[in-house]
Amino acid sequence: MIVRLTYLSFLPQNLAQAKRIYSEQVVPVVRKQKGNLDCRLLEPIEKNDDYISMTTWESKADADAYHSSGTYRDLVEKVRKDFAKDPVLKVYTTESILEHA
């Protein structure tokens, strides 16, 4: 499984709007993508920390197809005006030594 984490910092005055757009427009589109297992926005407990958009995928191929299709870029553009700084994407695998035991 692949986990994509996009770290987001929103302008305080645009936070409510950004969260609404994410919930109403981003989540439904991502969840329809081939291989998507989950899509959610993680809200920081410490208000100075970034929000994190977390998507999980069945395979690296599915995650890569989503990214290269342009859908990811289009969804980021929906909330770009709400950013305090550019988002940062990091990708991880959930593979562990326990899966090989």
Rank of each mutant, 00 (worst) to 15 (best):
L98D: 13
T93W: 06
L5P: 01
D74M: 10
A101F: 14
R80C: 08
E24H: 14
F10D: 05
L41P: 01
D62V: 02
T55F: 04
H67L: 13
T94S: 05
Q13H: 04
K47D: 06
N36G: 01
K78Y: 06
D82A: 15
V88F: 00
I2K: 02
D86C: 05
H67K: 14
V88S: 02
Y92D: 08
K90I: 09
Q17Y: 12
K78N: 07
A63K: 08
T55G: 02
K60Q: 15
A63Y: 12
T6V: 09
L89W: 03
K78P: 09
V27S: 03
E58Y: 12
T55W: 05
L42Q: 05
N36K: 08
E58Q: 15
Y22G: 05
M1P: 13
N36A: 05
V30I: 03
V88N: 00
C39W: 07
V91M: 07
D38G: 09
I21L: 03
D74P: 00
V76L: 03
K47S: 15
A84D: 05
Q25N: 13
D74T: 12
D64Y: 09
L98M: 14
V91Y: 01
E43G: 05
R80P: 03
S9M: 07
K78I: 06
V91W: 04
S68Q: 15
Y72R: 15
L41V: 07
K85Q: 08
A101Q: 13
D86K: 02
Y92G: 03
K81G: 10
V76K: 02
L11A: 09
I21V: 01
Q13T: 06
K32N: 11
F83Q: 07
P87W: 03
K78C: 00
V3D: 00
G35W: 03
V3I: 15
L89C: 09
A84Q: 07
V26R: 10
E46W: 10
L42C: 09
L37T: 01
V30W: 02
Q17A: 08
T71V: 13
H67D: 13
I2M: 02
E43D: 13
I21Q: 01
N48W: 09
E77V: 05
L15N: 04
T56M: 08
E43K: 02
R80L: 09
S96C: 12
A61S: 10
A65W: 10
Y51K: 05
R31H: 06
L11V: 08
Y72M: 13
K90N: 10
V79E: 04
H67Q: 13
K47T: 13
K19I: 12
T71A: 12
Y72D: 14
V3T: 13
I2G: 03
K60F: 00
D74V: 00
V79K: 05
R31Q: 10
Y51S: 03
K34Y: 11
C39G: 08
R80Y: 04
T55N: 02
A61I: 01
E43Y: 00
G70S: 04
T55S: 02
K19N: 12
V79P: 10
S53T: 10
L89T: 14
N14F: 11
D86H: 04
I52A: 03
P44D: 01
A63G: 10
K90F: 04
K47E: 12
A16I: 06
V3A: 13
R4G: 05
P44G: 05
Y66V: 05
D86V: 07
A84G: 11
D64Q: 12
S53H: 12
V29L: 07
L11E: 08
E58L: 14
L37Y: 08
S9E: 11
L11C: 08
K19E: 15
F10T: 10
Y51R: 00
